[in-house]
């Protein structure tokens, strides 16, 4: 299988508390992997470590076989900065609270990276942004500022901002946790469309039915480890795992 992301044996602790305890996870091209688990299970930290927002203590993370970080003499060594930058340009991340730039219009938010970082031709970047906005039903919002948008629209803009860089893999960190149920359904629909197009995605989520519907694989995290992993139907019917059963039980009420 063509592995886009390979995380191997990563450890991470904060102030003596182990948050990630020997986690391994591989994601193949076109796969949609949902990461579920209760708060504090390490899901978000895993995402932060995979996207280099947080440095790992040991283990390795590779994209397309290239190491972003590996362990040499029990120390985590990151790739040299130029190479690191190139590797990191291969993924995108949609934050829970979108983190749009408040002083830029929707259009500027989306085109900032292609124009300033990737030095794309301006007209081309704008054209591409307009196509993305159309796709995310935001065509009339190009000149609006983030504060003028609803939470769901803001999150859609942040998805467009991540997509314009043509990432090989897209991470979502609880993309709907800050939204009400109606807006949540809206966002999930767009993610579903991406899945249909075989976009490789890793989604940290609390939306169980959504995870079940769109994922090719679901990972259940507990106490900083992968407690269970498998195809959605298989995992959601897994009654052998006591913790998983209890976790899923909370959602069936």
């Amino acid at each position: 299988m063509d592995e886009v992301l390979a995380i191997k044996n990563i450890f991470k602790s904060y102030g003596g508390k182990t948050v990630l305890n020997d986690i391994s996870l591989t994601v193949g091209r076109g796969e949609v992997v949902s990461v579920i688990g209760s708060s504090g299970s390490g899901k978000s930290t895993l995402l932060r470590c995979a996207t280099h927002l947080t440095d790992i203590d040991s283990g390795s993370v590779a994209y397309n076989g290239e190491y972003m970080v590996r362990t040499v003499d029990s120390k985590a060594v990151y790739a040299p900065s130029r190479e690191l930058k190139r590797i990191c340009s291969g993924f995108g991340l949609v934050f829970q609270n979108h983190n749009l730039f408040p002083h830029m219009t929707v259009m500027k938010n989306i085109t900032a990276a292609p124009i300033s970082v990737m030095k794309t031709n301006k007209e081309y970047a704008y054209e591409k942004a307009r196509a993305l906005l159309k796709r995310l039903d935001l065509s009339d919002k190009a000149d609006a500022y983030p504060f003028q948008l609803s939470g769901g629209q803001q999150q859609r803009v942040s998805i467009a901002r991540a997509l314009i860089c043509d990432p090989e893999i897209l991470f979502f960190d609880e993309p709907t946790s800050a939204l009400d149920p109606e807006l949540t359904a809206g966002i999930l629909r767009y993610i579903k469309d991406l899945a249909a197009e075989k976009m490789t995605m890793v989604i940290v989520t609390h939306e169980m039915s959504f995870a079940r519907k769109i994922s090719s694989r679901v990972v259940f995290m507990n106490g900083g480890t992968v407690a269970a992993e498998g195809a959605p139907d298989e995992l959601f019917n897994n009654c052998d795992n006591e913790r998983l059963r209890r976790f899923l039980g909370q959602f069936s009420e």
Binding site: G92, R161, C165
Partner: peptide
């Protein structure tokens, strides 16, 4: 989060 968003975008 503003710094993190910028970092992810490659700034």
């Amino acid at each position: 989060g503003q710094y993190e968003a910028a970092q992810i975008l490659g700034f």
